[in-house]
Design a protein around this nucleic acid. Structure first.
Length: 645
RNA sequence: GCCAGUGUAGCUCAGUUGGCCAGAGCAGCUGAUUUGUAAUCAGCUGGUCGGGGGUUCGAAUCCCUCCACUGGCUCCA
């Protein structure tokens, strides 16, 4: 007998060779219908694959993330079967599940896919699903596997096989389609009841743009139509809070063909938000001992040769303009300029940590296909600063930068983010990364140490560091699911030496400082793009371009409305009067849609009693208040930068 | 940059087997209405149908090309 341990700790005995599906059937018929796969000793396992050893078992259904990914992985195989039946001779690369669905990369030769092809494939998938074919697992020798794909003339699968160990190779077959695959898969195709192929894209083989571009089809599937409908509805809802849509509706920013791609024009409402963010940054940085500087938008080529940016970064910079035989570049980063300020005067250890801050304007020639609303642009304003410090000071400095992030995130109510410890890839030393193995090791340990000692949750990722050192990136997601680095905190052990930056130590020797590059509020462009989606356009009062709108019941109360407006303006509250000859219902509706935080309705009653009828955006009628009391409350809300709407 | 798609008024969208002066709603403007918690009524204005070239008696509609945008790939704050 084999002992099976369940997640709740219960242990039961079964005959050897029992399957997860049989165990589920023993528990309940309903459960068995829902089982997609299992984990056996922590390893994902087909529901119909026999178990011969004592094991811990967890049944996976649609409710579990691993259940979903198994379902989508099997869906990718189903799609491949449909594609192969439509386009014989197609060669497949890989077809994994992703966060929302799955894709399969394939080489279709010279054939191009159209939307109609997609519809036809989807139709075929539905037919094949109805056949309810089982996914059959087969262990196979490497030699046999190679022979199979040689016969098929499939160089892609042969490439995959190269890296696999003999004795560890499995094929899965459903219907007429057999694929090299480690599995697991759902029991049969009939479980896939709702199918939507979402788009066709090109994808470079092995993710390298030097390689051939394969055709990638994305899709998503569900165990029933209702869930698919819900998913599509959710996508529609997400589009409504897309910053590109909200930004236009709220008059935050715009683009113009004559200005250029990726070059946003900030409209008056957007400029107010920028002002508020800069006020926050300036207050915070002043208190934290930063000094503000201002630097030019261009610099000579030589600066970037010294910094070392040019070889790593040139493709992302606007091409230079040449004046009197000297090349000038638009700056893509502020650090070299700041280093020159550090170098302008002799520095003592007493000056350190020396912190220079600037909302620097940078220009980056991002590839045309990369531009994305405000989130990825070619002109950006960075909440930049550079901290020059000793090794002994590094821990405290880096830690206080991290604390600054968390303080900001609290103000904005940002909760869904991931701190990513971005490390170098040793195999790319001297190419993508400065060739200083020992310094990499040392600084990576320093950064990890800060995260560990401050109990900050984080993930470690290889090959994401800056060329000059490791960093912590704060990753967020746009409403349509794209991932971005919102903020970054970086160590730089390379540029100090390149610029020959030095300070005099207590012992009267010279030493090169460590440098921290940091941008807790990222760039105005990405940060405001993110905030638009984060708040769905409903900015807290302190950020709202228009904070209060006064709505007179009729023209008769314009005098009183003017009076109230004067009081609000004296209190530095951004306010305006809706002076259109419209009915009050109309004024309320329009102001609600403009997402103005407060509405003040004034008519006969309010005028007589020197009161206001207060309406809060999204909350409705809040009752009446004295003018002075309302002003006092709003000022407090603004001053606290209250995030709660 | 590469793959696929989209481009009609400020916004949302009609209009294609090529054929009456290219339409609607909202927004805007003008006038009337003076209004109590999410749309008052009427009239008017507004489009080189993304740009350029071609096919045709005739092009928003078909072809070529460029541009911009969208979804991916690669790259990044």
């Amino acid at each position: 007998m084999v002992k099976i341990t369940f997640p709740d700790g219960a242990v039961r005995e079964y005959r050897p060779g029992i399957t997860a599906m049989e165990i589920a059937e023993g528990i309940s018929r309903g459960l068995a219908k829902k089982v997609l796969a299992a984990t056996v000793n922590g390893q994902v396992w087909d529901a119909v694959r026999p178990i011969y050893n004592d094991s811990t078992l967890k049944l996976l259904t649609w409710e579990e993330a691993e259940g979903k990914s198994t379902f989508w992985h099997s869906s990718a195989h189903l799609m491949a079967e449909a594609v192969e039946s439509q386009f014989p001779g197609v060669k497949f690369w890989v077809g994994p599940p992703v966060e929302n669905g799955f894709y399969y990369d394939m080489d279709l030769g010279d054939r191009k896919l159209s939307e109609e092809d997609l519809a036809a494939i989807e139709k075929k998938m539905n037919e094949l699903a109805k056949q309810n074919n089982p996914y059959v697992r087969k262990e196979i020798s490497k030699a046999e596997a190679i022979r199979y794909f040689e016969d098929k003339g499939d160089e892609y699968k042969l490439d995959l096989l190269q890296n696999l160990e003999d004795g560890n190779i499995t094929f899965y077959t459903q219907g007429a389609f057999t694929d090299l695959c480690r599995g697991p898969h759902i029991p049969q195709t009939g479980l896939i009841r709702a199918i939507k192929l979402t788009n066709i894209a090109g994808a470079y083989w092995k993710g390298d743009e030097k390689n051939k571009q394969l055709t990638r089809i994305y899709g998503i599937t569900f165990p029933n139509q209702k869930e698919l409908d819900e998913y599509l509805h959710m996508l529609e809802e997400a589009k409504k809070r897309d910053h590109r849509k909200l930004g236009k509706e709220l008059g935050i920013f715009t683009f113009d063909d004559d200005i250029g791609p990726g070059l946003p024009l900030w409209m008056p409402n957007g400029a107010i938000i920028i002002e508020e963010l800069e006020k926050l940054a300036k207050d915070t940085e002043e208190q934290a001992g930063y000094k503000r500087v201002v630097t030019p938008h261009i610099a000579k080529e030589n600066l970037y040769l010294t910094s070392g940016h040019l070889p790593y970064y040139q493709d992302s910079m606007y091409p230079p303009m040449e004046l009197d035989g000297v090349k000038y570049y638009l700056k893509a980063m502020n650090c070299p300029h700041h280093h020159k300020i550090f170098a302008a005067e002799p520095r003592s250890y007493k000056d350190l940590p020396y912190r220079l801050a600037e909302y620097g304007t940078c220009y980056r020639y991002e590839q045309s296909g990369e531009l994305f609303g405000l989130m990825r642009v070619r002109c950006l304003h960075m909440n930049d600063a550079h901290i020059y410090c000793t090794r002994e000071q590094f821990y405290e400095e880096f830690k206080s930068v991290n604390e600054m992030y968390l303080k900001y995130f609290k103000i904005f109510g940002i909760e869904k983010y991931v701190m990513r410890l971005s490390l170098h890839d040793p195999s790319k030393l001297g190419k993508k990364y400065v060739d200083e193995p020992a310094l990499w090791k040392e600084t990576e340990a320093l950064v990890r140490d800060v995260l560990v000692r401050t109990n900050t949750p984080f993930v470690e990722v290889q090959d994401e560091a800056a060329f000059y050192g490791p960093k912590i990136d704060v990753q967020i997601w746009s409403t349509i699911g794209r991932e971005f680095t919102l903020a970054t905190n970086q160590v730089d052990f390379a540029q100090g030496r390149r610029f020959k930056l030095e300070f005099t130590t207590k012992e009267n020797t010279s030493e090169t400082p460590l440098i921290i590059h940091r941008a807790p509020l990222g760039t105005h462009e990405r940060f405001i793009g993110f905030l638009l989606e984060h708040y769905a356009g409903n900015f807290p009062v302190w950020l709202a371009p228009l904070q209060v709108k006064i709505l007179p019941i009729s023209d008769k109360y314009m005098d009183y409305a003017q009076n109230v407006l004067e009081s609000l303006k004296k209190a530095d509250i951004r306010a305006a009067i809706d002076d259109r000859p419209e009915k009050i219902g109309r004024k309320i509706r329009d102001t609600e849609m403009a997402k103005v935080p407060y509405m003040l309705i004034v008519g006969e009653k309010e005028k007589q009693e020197h009161q206001l009828s207060v309406r809060k955006h999204g909350h409705g009628d809040m009752g009446t208040k004295a003018v002075a009391a309302f002003i006092e409350e709003v000022i407090a809300e603004i001053k606290n930068r209250a995030s709660e709407q």
